[in-house]
Simulated assay, not measured.
Amino acid sequence: MKDSRDVANYILQLAHDRGDSVTPMQLLKLTYIAHGWFYGIEGRPLICDPVEAWQYGPVIPRLYDEIKRYRGGAITSKIPRWRPDQLDADEKDIVKQVYDVYGKFTGPQLSNMTHAPGSPWHMTYEPGAFGRRISDDLIEEHYRRKASATA
C-alpha cells in the first residue's frame, strides 16, 4: 500500500506531461478512483490512507489537508512528499489508465460519479455526519463488480 500523496503526485505528473491542470476536487476523486480500480483488479488496496464519506463524495483526509489551500483553483506544485519510486509498474499502469479515462472530467463530474446509487460513498454517507470512514470491503467489492463488468 502506498501513501495517497505519492499516488496524487503521480497523477499530477501525468497531468503536467499532458499540459492539463488539476483542481483539488479532481485530484481527490482521481486518487480515490485509482485506489478503487486497483482494489477491484488486483484484489489489494493501492493506498494505505483511510477514505471518508464527505458531502461532496469520498475524501482522503491526509491528501485533502495537503491541497486544500488551492480551493477551487489548479494545483500548481507537487505535494512535498513526492517519491515517484514508490509506485511499481502495475500501480503506475492502473493509475495511468484511470487518468486516461477519468482525467477529462471536472471535479463536480467526478464527484457525481462517486455519488452513484450503490457506490461505497452512497452506502456510507449520512447527511450531517462528518468523517464516516468508507469500508475497504465496500470499495473493493464495488470496483471488483465494475472490473468484472468490463472484462
Score class of each variant (00 low, 15 high):
K2C: 11
K2P: 06
S4L: 06
R5N: 12
D6Y: 14
V7G: 05
Y10V: 07
L12T: 04
L14S: 07
L14P: 13
R18I: 09
D20S: 09
V22Y: 04
P24T: 08
Q26R: 04
Q26V: 09
Q26M: 11
K29V: 02
T31G: 06
T31P: 03
T31Q: 00
Y32A: 12
A34M: 05
H35K: 10
G36M: 06
Y39Q: 05
G40L: 04
G40N: 00
I41Y: 01
E42P: 06
R44K: 14
L46M: 05
V51D: 09
V51Q: 05
E52L: 07
A53C: 11
Q55P: 14
P58I: 12
V59P: 12
V59W: 09
V59K: 00
I60G: 11
I67W: 15
G72H: 14
I75N: 10
S77M: 00
I79R: 12
R81M: 03
R81G: 03
R81Q: 00
R81A: 08
R81C: 01
P84H: 13
P84L: 08
D88N: 06
A89K: 12
A89F: 09
E91T: 15
E91S: 07
I94K: 08
V95Y: 01
Q97A: 10
Y99D: 02
Y99F: 09
V101H: 03
Y102C: 12
Y102H: 08
G103K: 01
K104Y: 06
F105K: 02
T106E: 08
G107E: 10
P108Y: 10
Q109D: 13
M113Q: 02
T114D: 10
T114H: 03
P117C: 15
P117H: 13
G118S: 11
S119P: 13
S119L: 00
W121Q: 07
T124I: 07
T124Q: 02
Y125Q: 14
Y125C: 06
Y125K: 02
A129H: 08
G131T: 00
R132V: 15
R133W: 00
D136Q: 12
L138S: 08
I139D: 01
E140K: 03
E141A: 13
R144K: 07
K146V: 02
A147L: 01
A147H: 05
A149N: 06
